[in-house]
């Protein structure tokens, strides 16, 4: 399963990069969103042991994992916490990106990346 996740991560990354290279800035913003998604998928894939149950533990103090989670192998909680943070942060940057896109559109009266030629020397 992990290998398939990895392959899909690669495909999504390629699609995201392709979107980044579009002229339409809305498509570029979507490209970022695709990249965020791909990375979250990757984080999930690198989680240890292919769990079968959610990482919820029994109340009480235990020495062994089998006692704390009796129903089966739990999924890795650490990567899930990382993904949670990643989702929130990527949403924040996505919102900021869209805000900038809006400002650019208003100032230049265009959302075509090739019209933003302020860098041209």
């Amino acid at each position: 399963m992990g290998a398939i996740f990895a392959v899909v991560t690669g495909i999504l990354f390629g699609l995201g990069v392709f979107q980044l290279l579009r002229r339409d800035l809305i498509k570029v913003a979507m490209g970022f969103f695709i990249l965020f998604t791909a990375i979250n998928l990757f984080l999930l894939a690198v989680g240890t042991f292919d769990g079968r149950v959610a990482p919820y533990v029994q109340p009480g103090t235990f020495e062994r994992l089998e006692d704390a989670v009796p129903n089966g192998i739990p999924s890795d909680p650490l990567v899930q916490a990382l993904i949670l943070t990643a989702i929130v942060i990527s949403f924040g940057s996505y919102a900021l990106l869209l805000g900038m896109l809006n400002v650019v559109g208003k100032r230049k009266n265009s959302i075509n990346a090739d019209d933003l030629d302020d860098l041209k020397g």
């Binding site: 992990g2 996740f5 990895a6 392959v7 690669g10 495909i11 990354f13 390629g14 894939a45 042991f49």
Partner: peptide, 19 residues
Amino acid sequence: AVAVGLVALSVVEQRPTRA
């Protein structure tokens, strides 16, 4: 895509799978 896929693959395949 190929590069990221390869890196992801190598990481995923080399991760520890047992508790």
